[in-house]
Design a protein around this nucleic acid. Structure first.
Length: 330
DNA sequence: CCGGACTCCTGGTTGC
DNA sequence: TGCAACCAGGAGTCCG
């Protein structure tokens, strides 16, 4: 499942290809991938076609491409024209000859927001390459790299694309994020992440520690895999009450979260089969480094006792019953 | 505030 | 070989 490291790999892979590019054409093959877009497919296409892309940004598991202001007259729209397979909507806008590259996202009023959900991928391709299960296709023109294609592939359709308005953020002066991302906390690899605020909010919670780790409003980017890995590394049971964590233990946990995220990032993310790939379609290698997630039945790397999988929060929780025990105070 | 239940969803895998 | 049941869970919403 794409979590922070996987999304960051995608962002970093996309950045050089999209920064300064112009959206040439947008094709929506499956409207369900626009569930988070406020409006019909035609609106999504209209607001995207012809726009310049300023950069590639990320917070937690959310990825977005800030858009240059629309400078073109109303776009030509071709409903259902030349769309293969299940294609229903399409639009082609004349290429903007006057788009001037503006690094960063300052001034952007809108952005293309991408969430990969459970199975989403953004594949960077040549203009003539199609991918199976592509739900949305963006053809872009880049001043240096020429014509390119972004295929948004998503088997389970839990992911989405949306054109969204940018809002000022309260947590950093001058910062702006898409409205859909406004409620998401900064992620623990963000230099502006506030450790003390995290400890205070964690201590104020009255819930299990894994539930807190998965709460994207507390800290973002951590999903089921890295939650289990960080808890294993910190030797904390997933249901350990947050209020029972000492400050030292909370610090250890946050440090382990950062460590596992950074390590996975360094290895290109985690992937099983072909569910997660980078923009070139290659898999990450972190799955070889997992100590807890998916390791049920195999010996704990610390104590040798078998890792256990329990159902918690409608998902699997993997842990060592010996190393990670619920205690009164930890 | 908390947590459980429910919803979205489908291709690959498993089991008969 | 064929087909149905099963499985993975991020995130939002609703409700007690």
């Amino acid at each position: 499942m794409p979590e922070l490291p996987e999304v960051e790999v995608v962002r970093a892979g996309l950045e050089p290809a999209v920064t300064g590019a112009t959206v040439h054409a947008v094709t929506v093959f499956d409207e369900r991938s626009l569930r988070r877009h406020d409006g019909p497919s035609e609106d999504f296409v209209d607001r995207l076609a012809g726009r310049g892309i300023l950069s590639a940004e990320r917070r937690g598991k959310f990825l977005w491409l800030p858009l240059a202001p629309a400078v073109l007259p109303p776009k030509t729209k071709e409903i259902g024209a030349d769309i293969p397979e299940k294609g229903r909507f399409g639009a082609v806008a004349p290429q903007s000859p006057s788009f001037s590259e503006t690094p960063g996202d300052s001034g952007a009023a809108e952005a293309l927001v991408v969430h990969l959900g459970m199975s989403g991928q953004v594949l960077l391709r040549d203009r003539d390459t199609d991918d199976r299960l592509t739900r949305i296709r963006l053809d872009i023109d880049h001043p240096q790299h020429g014509p390119l294609r972004l295929n948004f592939v998503d088997q389970r359709i839990f992911g989405s694309m949306a054109v969204d308005t940018m809002l000022p953020t309260a947590d950093v002066p001058g910062g702006r994020v898409p409205s859909q991302v406004a409620h998401i906390a900064r992620d623990p690899l963000d230099p502006a992440f506030d450790d003390r605020r995290f400890y205070a909010r964690l201590a104020a919670r009255n819930t299990g520690v894994k539930r807190a780790l998965l709460d994207q409003t507390l800290l973002s980017g951590v999903g089921n895999i890295y939650a289990d890995e960080a808890l294993w590394a910190a030797r904390i049971h997933y249901a350990q009450p947050t209020g029972s964590l000492s400050r030292a233990r909370a610090k250890l946990l946050l440090a382990e979260v950062r460590l596992v995220l950074a390590k996975a990032l360094g290895e290109g993310g985690t992937s099983f089969d072909a569910q997660y790939v980078n923009v070139n379609g290659a898999s990450g290698y972190f799955s070889h480094s997992l100590n807890a997630y998916g390791q049920q039945g195999t010996p704990c790397a610390r104590c040798g006792r078998p890792i256990v999988r329990e159902s918690f929060m409608n998902r699997g929780s993997h842990f060592c019953p010996f190393c990670q025990r619920i205690r009164g105070q930890v």
